[in-house]
Nucleic acid binder design. Structure first.
Lengths: 229, 229
DNA sequence: GGCATCCTGGAACTACGGTCCCAGCGCGGA
DNA sequence: TCCGCGCTGGGACCGTAGTTCCAGGATGCC
């Protein structure tokens, strides 16, 4: 049982009828997690649909030491639908990146709400579809693009979110997990990009884009990468 | 409008009520495709939910020349849900592998059927969940397992589906697209496996597993691969 | 203070996988 | 018949990226 305004904080539930919202509010609960706390591990039994209200989590997979990020979810993001709707156990481990609050909805709760407002089913289908699309594009970034290109795209994103210089926003190890590689390679590619003057290092962990056009060209061209120094 | 027994041919629609089936049958149509015919290309506008009744299709993505298989769908498989439920255009290209017949359901048709029997929504959610699970495991195969291991797993599957010797079942190029690599590498790894006597080549394109235990060990161990000859 | 821990930065080595290229074979069409 | 085409098989080469190290700096804890 949560106040109904909690439901209103979830953007993708906007279209839902009042009856549907009431049902979700009546049957939902919230849970808090500390930074770095594990919400669940791959292989655990499903515990309901989680909707991130506050904070952010990362969904990781890792076979043997090496770990990589499947996706991230911030406020409004959903977690745990795969075993809930498809059966089986969680396919990935989820870890809070910051103090995080989630709305938890059991399968019966969702079914009851769908009965009140069938549009909820469409909304859920839409979210899962988005997940599929996202995974597909992650798959072909990792399989077809070299690390340098993936890193360049990452840097441009960071660059756009800030003015002037920027940091990676997380440790190099984390960035590597994001990009599907290892830390050392990230370091090397950062150096290479600095070598060809596309970026420059201001201070440890802080960079500036010095040739945005070249970086963009690197990201979007399908041509092999020239790292001529 | 299709006969109702067409709906009965779809295994995952089994749990559906008679009313739901009738609705789908009333509003569904079927379409035929020749082998190698393209059902749609990435970027096309959605044309409904396709359910494979007969035959098989492959769903491919390819950025610039190189192509790889996202998934395959045989009888009972579904296609096209992502843009239908999530909006946007098709995220991948779909090609018939054999003469194929599909049931096509428009979004209004599905919504009408969901209204008659809400369980249909759960079934669709279940299928999409399966797709997500499958993509995730494909992603970590490709990112964390060497080609040799992926190929070994593929060969074991072929081995199990037949007695004695077996063929790859499709051209080496196709196998490469399945495994997320290129033909030349497949050839090389096949030779390497033959070199260490795990398989042997009976005739062009035909192989036999000669050391199943070793092959299985190769697939399941997380240790680096020894290709000592 | 000293110690462990985690971070960034880097060097050297290796090998896996991709590219390019060639040869031979079978098959269907012109 | 010959030509083109797709398929299998293989050789040589090389670049990317993973592995294994090492060093220095910051931070926090005992």
């Amino acid at each position: 049982m949560v106040p109904e305004r909690v439901i209103s904080r979830v953007p993708w539930l906007e279209g839902l009828s009042a009856a549907g919202r009431r049902e979700l509010a009546a049957r939902g609960v919230t849970r808090q997690f500390a930074a770095e706390q594990v919400l669940w591990r791959r292989g655990d039994q499903p515990r309901g649909l989680f909707v991130v209200l506050e904070g952010a989590v990362r969904v990781v997979r890792g076979s043997g030491g090496r770990q990589y990020v499947l996706h991230r979810e911030g406020p409004g993001g959903t977690l745990g639908e795969v075993p809930l709707f498809g059966g089986g156990t969680y396919p990935a481990t989820v870890i809070a990146e910051e103090p995080t609050e989630c709305l938890v909805l059991s399968l019966p709760a969702i079914e009851a709400a769908v009965a009140r407002d069938p549009r909820l089913a469409s909304l859920l289908l839409g979210r899962l579809s988005g997940r599929v699309r996202e995974l597909a594009s992650r798959l072909d970034r990792v399989t077809t693009q070299p690390v340098a290109r993936r890193l360049a795209a990452y840097l441009l994103r960071r660059h756009e979110e800030s003015t002037g210089s920027f940091t990676l926003g997380q440790s190099q190890t984390r960035v590597a997990e994001d990009l599907g590689t290892v830390r050392e390679v990230v370091v090397r590619e950062l150096r290479a990009l600095a070598g060809v003057k596309m970026i420059s290092r201001i201070s440890p962990g802080r960079y500036r884009v010095t040739d945005e056009a070249a970086l963009r060209a690197m990201v979007s061209s399908r041509a092999p990468i020239s790292r001529t120094p």
